[in-house]
Design a binder for these strands. Structure first.
Lengths: 107, 107
DNA sequence: AGGATAATTAACTTATTAGTTAAGTACAAA
DNA sequence: TTTGTACTTAACTAATAAGTTAATTATCCT
């Protein structure tokens, strides 16, 4: 509904097919057919997933003859990572507190 | 569809209302009414959002009188963070390569 | 016991998402 | 210029998600 950029990204990442595509792209750029290969679903379905990733800014596309190769957007996950930072700090804080506590009862 | 745990988490995080709830919980536990306060939507809608967060393992709940306070699940985002690590490495690799390149042309 | 407060469940509506097949576009190659 | 390859768009269906109001459950307080 409120399609802010961060929500778009997280929603895009919430689908295992799309995450598998990103994983494939970690090894380098790939055409639509290459991305489609591991899946049983139709090519239009693949095409839509790719569009979701592109709209979310997670991948970019180029053009080579009749192919439309996809590549990871280098800073595509940066926004997600930034958002997570605050929570990562919390885990670390809790871990630190736990360590301190364990140290205390040990003494 | 394939509701694996990581997808559940990312889908849950893809909603700004739910992220706002998590942000509130960073300041400490909160009751349903407290979580609902900033929003105009109905309490049942809030209740559903909370259930999504709970099912995803992002929050836990306790019981205090007739309240059902929510708290952040300490390692709730750990799985997401682990998933992101591989991609974070890619950014860093690219940044490193860029730095190396800049260094090269500078010399 | 009876009423107030906190929250959930039920039943429903509407919008969005994920998939399908069939048709269309863009380019390459013969 | 026709044929094939690579993909996208259109039109549709079915499932899921996000919200609503009304009813229900659980606990506290008098």
């Amino acid at each position: 509904m409120n399609a802010d950029r961060l929500s778009l990204k997280l929603q895009a990442l919430g689908d295992p097919t799309r995450r598998a595509m990103l994983a494939r792209l970690r090894q380098g750029e790939a055409t639509v057919n290459e991305l489609a290969a591991p899946f049983t679903m139709s090519l239009p379905a693949i095409s839509k997933h790719i569009k979701v990733l592109e709209t979310a800014g997670l991948i970019t596309r180029s053009r080579a003859a009749q192919q439309r190769p996809c590549q990871l957007s280098p800073d595509g996950l940066r926004e997600v990572d930034d958002w997570m930072r605050a929570y990562r700090d919390i885990w670390e804080d809790r871990l630190n507190r736990l360590e301190t506590y364990l140290q205390t009862i040990k003494e």
